[in-house]
């Protein structure tokens, strides 16, 4: 009886999900790349929040509807903006993000080569 009571309480304060164990690979991959917008830096995959659980259901539905991975990303990008995707593609907003570290690497190499290494 007591167990039942606790279960009932949990129903109302605990995020629940309604998932089948199918299409998991793809779903995991997608949910790992989606940000749980209301959590602090967790992916939807890692989170149990209300928001994340609803999102997982939507991902499930979209997979069932036969949408491809990119189409699903596009869907969420439309709803919530690029902010929801963890893997920012290379575009005008992110050139600096992707290329600056590589430039720093090259510059570092050049500095080391020029100023420290004895040339023949």
């Amino acid at each position: 009886m007591k167990t039942l009571k606790i279960i009932i309480i949990i129903f109302f304060i605990y995020p629940t999900s309604n998932l089948k164990a199918e299409d998991l690979e793809m779903k995991n991959k997608i949910t790992k790349n989606l940000r749980c917008l209301i959590c602090q830096g967790q992916s939807v995959y890692d989170s149990d929040s209300e928001f994340a659980n609803s999102l997982k259901i939507i991902v499930d539905k979209k997979i069932d509807e036969g949408l491809s991975e990119d189409q699903i990303y596009e869907f969420f990008k439309n709803k919530y903006g690029e902010w929801i995707l963890y893997d920012p593609g290379l575009n005008k907003n992110t050139y600096i993000l992707w290329l600056l570290p590589l430039l720093i690497f090259l510059a570092g190499g050049a500095i080391i080569y020029n100023s420290f290494i004895v040339k023949k």
Binding site: N18, I38, F51, N53, S54, L55, I57, I58, K61, K79
Partner: peptide, 13 residues
């Protein structure tokens, strides 16, 4: 019930 309509709307919670 599932919170999915809220997501269609682009809501956070």
């Amino acid at each position: 019930l599932e919170g999915t309509i809220a997501i269609e709307w682009g809501a956070y919670g």
